[in-house]
Design a protein around this nucleic acid. Structure first.
Lengths: 114, 114
DNA sequence: AAGGTATATACCCGATTGGCTATATAATGG
DNA sequence: CCATTATATAGCCAATCGGGTATATACCTT
């Protein structure tokens, strides 16, 4: 599984996004993270493992607690990928590009159309 | 399914990200989009439906072709969500890492807290 | 109307996901 | 040691996913 795959897949779940949002404020134990959700502790642990495998959190040790801390670097990489689309969502010059792209595609494949 | 859920889930697949990347250059038909992949046409159509349901593409009509066009607004929303973490991945929000220099600190894996 | 081309749909399949309960492990405090 | 607390693991289940093939549909051309 690609790095970006894992990052975006991890972000596709609202529980996991909420956990990350909580971790902006600082480290938290599993119990603390589980508290807002109507969900069993093992389910939260599973979500945490997904986040950890995606490199979005790391875990420490504090007595029997395993505090989670945010690791935002993969979010930066996801952001880098998204950046390439910024021009598109900020301005609406899809139409122009569409025209250019279609003309080039025609040249490349040499098909019969129009 | 939440809007962000659908967006991130759509982005979690490398085929779909490659399709979006292709669409930056402009509209493309299903056949054109399928060409780079060792994958059947129905599978590509499935991916396109995922992208369409996430609002990431829209489709037109050109004879028997159904050209796909990039719709980047959901990417902007995903970006908005990620923005809240920018300070964190740009460094220093993590107490000691700020002092040590975030770049090298990534090497050592086992440091827990403070 | 027939045939070709582009795309969609239906269905099958194995793998993964996201939830659960029950139980195991880890570390602490008495 | 023992009990308690915090967390992880195992196994179950239904749903979804991502691929496939076969077939249907839509539109154009002749």
């Amino acid at each position: 599984m690609n790095h970006l795959d894992a990052t975006f897949a991890a972000l596709a779940d609202p529980t996991r996004r909420a956990i990350l949002a909580r971790l902006i404020e600082g480290e938290a134990s599993v119990m603390e993270l589980a508290e807002p959700f109507a969900m069993s502790q093992p389910s939260i642990s599973k979500h945490l493992k997904v986040l950890e495998n995606a490199g979005l959190i790391s875990r420490g040790r504090d007595a029997q607690r395993r505090p989670c801390r945010l690791e935002a670097r993969p979010l930066g990489e996801a952001n880098d990928w998204l950046e390439r689309y910024r021009k598109v969502w900020e301005g609406n010059f899809q139409r122009l590009d569409a025209l250019l792209g279609a003309m080039q595609a025609k040249k490349a494949s040499g098909d019969a159309e129009q």
